[in-house]
């Protein structure tokens, strides 16, 4: 137990170091982009968060599938925490993207496929969180939200396809030729990505711990009620 605790302390230190390194590289260590100047530095946190969102929702869908196949409370707790932190990061992606768009495109919002899909994603998973908060029985809540997490996740590719068919202007960062940016920026992007993933893991762990305590309290309360009636 003590060894594991030490491991997590090390992990936290690494994550903090990654954030500092990422911020240093983003603001001091990389050259300005030619056409847009320093505003492209938004990209580091934007991409890091966006990729982590993809991980978060995929993880939630996988855990939900596992829950439907073999119902175990811990799958549900991890899926829920993953969606919750993923949704916070989606908010960050939308806000940072919007601010960049205001500078680069002159508008906070355009109906570009990736923007629109991200917004739909955000609604779908806010729905997940609302669904959870309106069911009281833990096993029922777990099953219904697992169904929804799976349904929402499978809907996303079709949404993207439909909106792309509709229109497109988002800048392509990853093309078939590789990365469309200087090497030092690529390193910074990945350092930031690692930093955000680290934060994600830490926050999810925190929420899972909390959910465990919560269900522990519920069980104890039920026992107490049983003893006194």
């Amino acid at each position: 137990m003590a060894e594991r605790h030490g491991l997590w302390t090390t992990f936290r230190a690494v994550v903090a170091a990654l954030w500092l390194a990422g911020l240093y590289m983003a603001f001091i260590g990389t050259p300005d982009e030619r056409t847009l100047g320093p505003s492209d530095r938004i990209l580091f946190i934007h991409l890091g968060a966006a990729w982590t969102v993809a991980i978060a929702y995929s993880l939630a869908a996988l855990l939900s599938l596992l829950y439907l196949l073999r119902p175990q409370p811990r799958y549900d707790r991890w899926a829920a925490a993953s969606v919750e932190v993923g949704t916070v990061l989606t908010t960050a992606v939308l806000v940072s993207g919007s601010i960049w768009a205001k500078f680069a495109w002159g508008t906070y919002w355009t109906w570009d496929p990736r923007l629109t899909t991200t917004a739909v994603l955000w609604f779908l998973y806010l729905g997940y969180l609302m669904m959870r908060s309106s069911i009281d029985r833990p096993d029922q809540r777990a099953k219904v939200s697992a169904i929804w997490a799976l349904v929402a996740f499978l809907d996303v590719p079709i949404v993207f396809e439909a909106v792309t068919w509709w229109r497109s202007i988002h800048p392509e960062v990853i093309t078939t030729q590789g990365f469309a940016m200087p090497g030092s920026m690529v390193v910074a992007v990945f350092v930031f990505f690692a930093a955000v993933v680290g934060l994600f893991i830490e926050l999810v762990r925190l929420r899972v711990r909390q959910a465990e305590i919560e269900s522990g309290i519920a069980v104890r309360k039920a026992q107490w009620m049983g003893q006194h009636t």
């Binding site: 739909v120 609604f123 779908l124 729905g127 609302m130 669904m131 309106s134 069911i135 009281d136 029922q140 219904v144 929804w148 349904v151 929402a152 809907d155 079709i158 949404v159 396809e161 439909a162 909106v163």
Partner: peptide, 20 residues
């Protein structure tokens, strides 16, 4: 069916899903 206020919440879930 399993939600409190399920009928009220339904459009909130349905319309984002229906985007395509």
């Amino acid at each position: 069916l399993h939600l409190r206020m399920g009928e009220l919440l339904l459009p909130l879930f349905l319309f984002p899903l229906l985007v395509p």
